[in-house]
Design a protein around this nucleic acid. Structure first.
Lengths: 102, 102, 102, 102
DNA sequence: ACTGAAGGCTGCCCGC
DNA sequence: GCGGGCAGCCTTCAGT
């Protein structure tokens, strides 16, 4: 073990400290932001808005700008297949793919 | 500490053991069920189905038989208000309630 | 409904928009911070640290040392109480009773 | 596309239904077990036990004791390294491994 | 004060 | 082997 090695513990400790410190700092900032958000919800509530609905709205907006439709289409196929269960109106064609796989 | 107290520890310990044991047993059963479910998903996958979509389908069916509509109505009001943001097509009337509250 | 009332919908909508907008902004910032934290953990991992342990360390530092000790003490009490049951034949027999009952 | 193919949609639909149905059944059973567990925790609480501690106990029992000890040891190493931060009393040696990795 | 829900964190499993 | 996605657990917070 070299002299450098002898001191490397300190160096490593310092790096560990740096890591922990930075993470804790960032987590504090996150916590502060959460508090701010909470405050806004309270303000909304005071203004007569329904917070639960606002949460739903924001949740929706978060996933809207995505490819929801593609997933929705496939889900619809499955839904139709399940609906009357033994019935396959126009989902049959789409289901052929699955049958072909078998 | 009386003799009764001396023995009560055992009694309490037995009760604690009973509690822990029963919980662990139930958790094992839960785990077994999870394994079964997983197996079915694999079977589905082998059959050419899309597991993610099946999950979505099941999730939907779980919350469908509820009062989704009531919540949806209010959400729609808020959604319309936000749409063009400053616009209040027919959500204005619904929004009066909020205004009155202010 | 007055003229003021006629416009109040817009005003309310604007307030709603303000609320939603600010919340989404704050949530974006939170998300960014989460990404930063994740990055630091990756750096830690690259440096040969065990991330799981670092997480444990940070979790521990977040709590009051007194609480930690108290919790640990109680856990030890329960652990000791359970020990004789789980590890002895007598305990095993008692275990059967409960198992049969379940 | 054969006649069989013509009907395969129904067949596939039936298989899908089977999958969904079985999964939902199993999930219901899981839910029931969760309710049972919750009930036991309530019973524990009524009996004067601390549920949080019981949960910790069960969590601990789920793991290999060796792993628990190893994790605790590593945590201690990190803790000592961080304590006076720049100080590495006897954690230095343990930290060498990390240094070697860098 | 307690219960029920919402969000965040953790461990697991799959695909790359 | 690793990073992402997903389900479960824990914690916190609003509501009662």
């Amino acid at each position: 073990m070299s002299d450098v090695g002898h001191n490397s513990g300190s160096i490593v400790a310092e790096r560990l400290w740096s890591i922990v410190c930075r993470i804790e700092r960032l987590e504090d900032e996150k916590k502060a932001l959460s508090a701010d958000i909470k405050e806004i919800y309270q303000e909304a509530k005071s203004g007569g808005f329904d917070c639960k609905t606002i949460r739903a709205l924001i949740r929706e907006r978060k996933q809207d700008p995505a490819d929801v439709e593609e997933q929705e289409t496939l889900l619809d196929t499955y839904r139709r297949a399940l609906g009357p269960y033994a019935d396959t109106p126009l989902g049959a064609a789409a289901m052929e793919r699955v049958a072909a796989h078998a």
